[in-house]
Design a protein around this nucleic acid. Structure first.
Length: 379
DNA sequence: GTCGTGTTTCCTGCTT
DNA sequence: GAAGCAGGAAACACGA
C-alpha cells in the first residue's frame, strides 16, 4: 500500500520535475549534464490541465498500441490525478505495462487490475484508440494537402486538444534566449528529466523547436498549469521597481517584500492566475524530491547522512534557480530559498546543523525521505 | 472579506 | 571580501 503510494507519488513528482524543464539545455559552462537522458522521465500527468491541453501529450497523440511503459505510466498518472483516485490502491506492476498489452485487455480485466479506475481507463483507452485511428487517416490526408497547398500552417480542422495555440505567447526561442541571459540555469532536462514532446504546449511549439516544454502538476497538486506566458523569464523590464518603492529614499529601500505589479498589469501578463491553483509542493518536498532521486539530481544536492536525514546543497544557486522555475520566479536565489528553509526550523520540518554550511537536516515533521518511505529510490 | 499558511523579498548583523 | 547563516519585518498568493 505504502509503496504504491510512494511510488506513484514519486512518479508524480517526476512529472513535476518535467515541468521545470523549460528549455533545451544550452549546457552553459559548469552546468549539469546527464548525458543521454532520452530514457529518463517523460512523465506528464497534467493534473491541473484541462483535457483540451492534453493534446500534445505524447501518450495522447500516440496509438495506445505503441505506448511505451512510460506512456502508460503517464496516462495512468493523468487519470489518477484527474479523478483524485487513491493511488495507494493501485498495483504499480500494472502501471508499467506496454501499451500493446493494455490494448488486449478486456474491461473486466482492467476493472480487476485497477479497481474503480479500471472502467475509466478502459474507456479512455478505447477513445484514444479510436481517436488515433481517425487522426492517422486525417494526417495522411493532411500530408497530402500540405504537399499540395503550401500554407505553412494548415489546420486539420479538428485539432487535438491543446492545439489552440496562442502564438502571441513567448516562443521557446524567447525563453531560451532569456535563459542564456540569465546565465547558468539548469533545467530538469539537465537533471535527466527530459520531458520530450509530451508537453501540452510542445505540439504547437514544435514548429519553433520547442519540444520540451512540459507542463504539469505537482505531486501535491500543482501550482501550475504551465504555459509559455507563465514560464516567461525575466527580461530587462522584469527587474521591476515596484510602484511606490521608487519613491523611497534612494539607496535605501523599506523593509519587507515590495509590492508586485498592480492587479491589472499582472492580469495582462498572467491571465491564468485567476484559476484556482492548488498549492504546489512545498519547498521542503521539492528539496526532498531532488534528494531521493540521486540518479537525477546530478550533483545538485547530496545526502550527508541519509539515515539521519542530513543533506547538503552542492549547487545551491542551481537548486534555487530550479525552485524558481517551479514557482515561476526567475529571481529566486539561494539566499531567499535558504530563508524559507530556515522557517522550517520552527515547524521542525528541518533541523539546524550547526557549524556546517549548506547542510540541513530533515526534522521530525518531514516525511518521505527515509529509505523505507521512498520505495524504489536509492540513495 | 478575513484569516492562516507558506512562502518571498529585503535587510542587518554575524560567522566562516 | 565573499558566501553563507540567522532571523526580523512585511508583502504576497492561495485556500478555507
Amino acid at each position: 500500500m505504502m509503496s504504491a503510494t510512494c511510488e506513484l507519488s514519486s512518479i508524480l513528482t517526476k512529472a513535476n520535475h518535467a515541468m521545470y524543464q523549460i528549455s533545451d539545455p544550452g549546457q552553459p559552462a559548469g552546468s549539469l549534464s546527464l548525458g543521454d537522458s532520452k530514457d529518463s522521465l517523460q512523465l506528464l500527468t497534467s493534473a491541473q490541465l484541462p483535457a483540451e491541453l492534453l493534446g500534445p501529450c505524447k501518450w495522447y497523440n500516440t496509438d495506445p498500441q505503441f505506448w511505451s511503459k512510460q506512456n502508460v505510466l503517464e496516462w495512468i498518472s493523468y487519470h489518477v490525478e484527474e479523478t483524485k483516485f487513491d493511488a495507494s490502491t493501485l498495483n504499480m506492476a500494472y502501471c508499467t505495462l506496454e501499451g500493446s498489452v493494455l490494448c488486449q485487455m478486456s474491461r473486466d480485466t482492467m476493472l480487476s487490475m485497477f479497481g474503480p479506475l479500471g472502467d475509466r481507463l478502459y474507456h479512455s483507452l478505447q477513445d484514444l484508440k479510436a481517436k488515433n485511428r481517425i487522426r492517422e487517416s486525417s494526417e495522411t490526408f493532411q500530408v497530402h494537402m500540405n504537399s499540395t497547398v503550401q500554407t505553412g500552417q494548415l489546420s486539420t480542422g479538428s485539432p487535438a486538444p491543446g492545439c489552440g495555440t496562442d502564438f502571441s505567447k513567448p516562443t521557446s526561442r524567447d525563453v531560451q534566449s532569456e535563459l542564456k541571459m540569465m546565465g547558468e540555469l539548469p533545467s530538469w532536462s539537465d537533471l535527466g528529466y527530459e520531458s520530450g514532446p509530451t508537453s501540452p504546449d510542445s505540439l504547437d511549439s514544435s514548429s519553433a523547436g520547442m519540444q520540451n516544454f512540459p507542463s504539469s502538476p505537482d505531486s501535491g497538486g500543482s501550482d501550475s498549469e504551465l504555459d509559455f506566458s507563465e514560464m516567461r523569464l525575466p527580461s530587462a523590464t522584469d527587474s521591476y521597481q515596484e510602484p511606490g518603492r521608487a519613491e523611497l529614499k534612494p539607496g535605501k529601500r523599506g523593509r519587507g517584500r515590495p509590492r508586485k505589479l498592480s492587479r491589472g498589469a499582472e492580469d495582462c501578463m498572467d491571465t491564468k492566475k485567476s484559476k484556482h491553483a492548488p498549492r504546489g509542493t512545498h519547498l521542503w518536498e521539492f528539496i526532498r524530491d531532488i534528494l531521493i532521486h540521486p540518479e537525477l539530481n546530478n550533483g545538485l544536492m547530496k545526502w550527508e547522512d541519509r539515515r539521519e536525514g542530513v543533506f547538503k546543497f552542492l549547487k545551491s544557486e542551481a537548486v534555487a534557480q530550479l525552485w524558481g522555475q517551479k514557482k515561476k520566479n526567475s529571481s529566486m536565489t539561494y539566499e531567499k530559498l535558504s530563508r524559507a528553509m530556515r522557517y522550517y526550523y520552527k515547524r521542525e520540518i528541518l533541523e539546524r546543523v550547526d557549524g556546517r554550511r549548506l547542510v540541513y537536516k530533515f526534522g521530525k515533521n518531514s516525511s518521505g525521505w527515509k529509505k523505507r518511505e521512498s520505495i524504489g529510490e536509492n540513495g
